[in-house]
């Protein structure tokens, strides 16, 4: 009996040790290339929507890898392969290099001039200690203007109350999110929640349910709930340009659902996939879109959202230190009921 029990105990201890797990630091170009391809193969969410044949891209780029491929060459191959995904949320990041797809904003009009915009709120207030948030009264105090430059920066509800309190006698409001490259969805939702008074369906989200390219959950409805703070239910124009990406693209997608909101400017930059992070055996970081966020019609906004009112910033206005988009928005708000 004693011998039996002792044997059982020893077996259990050996079992625990037998499960020792080992992964070794590996700089092999082949293994790192394969790991990068596989992580994206199992997790990236837009293969079918973008009609990308990921298997054929393996063949195309795998040929460029051999055991003499150095670190810089490996990075270049991975960067080129991931840029085929046409997604600003896909990055390969090493200690020295950073790859990013920039086609989502290149070759599009900027529709934004920082020095011109500063003319509009130079005499206005800067919001507390925030770097990315500015606001002012325009058109003799009839129009409120708020610029939110990055949703990486969060704002307190009390600060938003202060800002919206400043606008209480205005006829209309301009929300300028041009060149806002995204950030936290919590921050963008916090601002959007000021523009509605009832819970509103504003989109859907899906997630991968497995490693297959088409393994997706049913779209789950996303609702926007009104803030408990001061609300703005009068006319709003959201200014957009191609650099509105990721959380800002999502902000625009939600705002355009609201009845008192119009969008004006250029198409947004897209970036509607919620990104996750993983890593390669050599320690490089890889980021990729994994959960598509859909608009209220269950359509992708990965390649951007067209504005309700297309307007381009003209060089003539820039010379006059005027912003075509802001001036157009002011006129529309002043003349609308």
């Amino acid at each position: 009996m004693n011998r039996l029990l002792t044997s059982v105990g020893l077996m259990m201890i050996l079992f625990a040790y037998g499960c020792e797990m080992v992964d070794e630091f590996d700089t092999s170009p082949r293994r790192n290339f394969d790991a990068c391809w596989k992580i994206l193969d199992e997790n990236y969410c837009f293969f079918d929507y973008k009609q990308i044949d990921w298997n054929s891209l393996y063949g195309k780029y795998s040929m460029q890898i051999n055991e003499s491929t150095d670190e810089r060459e490996l990075f270049q191959v991975l960067a080129s392969m991931t840029q085929e995904l046409q997604d600003g949320h896909v990055n390969v990041i090493s200690k020295y290099y950073f790859s990013s797809y920039e086609g989502w904003f290149q070759y599009h009009p900027a529709n934004f001039n920082w020095s011109v915009i500063q003319n509009y709120y130079r005499d206005g207030e800067r919001s507390g200690d925030y770097d990315e948030i500015r606001y002012a009264l325009l058109a003799g105090g009839q129009i409120g203007y708020i610029y939110y430059g990055s949703f990486d920066e969060s704002i307190l509800e009390s600060e938003l109350n202060k800002i919206f309190g400043t606008f209480k006698d205005c006829k209309g409001l301009i929300v300028d999110v041009r060149d806002n490259g995204g950030g936290s969805l919590t921050n963008s939702d916090r601002l959007a929640s000021r523009f509605l008074d009832t819970k509103t369906l504003c989109g859907y989200i899906q997630h991968k349910t497995g490693k297959g390219h088409n393994d997706f959950s049913e779209p789950y409805p996303l609702y926007l709930e009104p803030s408990h703070g001061d609300l703005w239910l009068k006319q709003v124009i959201v200014l957009t340009n191609r650099r509105c990406f990721s959380a800002t693209n999502n902000f625009v997608s939600k705002m355009r659902v609201l009845p008192n909101v119009r969008t004006l400017g250029g198409s947004t930059g897209g970036g509607s996939g919620f990104p996750f992070t993983s890593e390669l055996p050599n320690g490089w970081r890889i980021r990729f879109s994994t959960s598509p966020i859909l608009d209220i019609n269950k359509q992708h906004t990965e390649f951007g959202i067209e504005p309700d009112i297309p307007v381009t910033l003209t060089s003539e206005d820039i010379e006059k230190q005027k912003d075509t988009l802001i001036e157009t928005a002011i006129q529309l708000l002043l003349t609308s009921d």
Partner: peptide, 26 residues
């Protein structure tokens, strides 16, 4: 030696984000 036989556990779907689970309530 302790070994569990069965029970329940937190088991999120493959690619779901904590944002979807806890901010959006899925």
């Amino acid at each position: 030696a302790d070994i569990p036989l069965g029970g329940i556990f937190f088991s999120p779907p493959y690619g779901i984000s904590y944002y979807e689970m806890f901010n959006e309530g899925n």
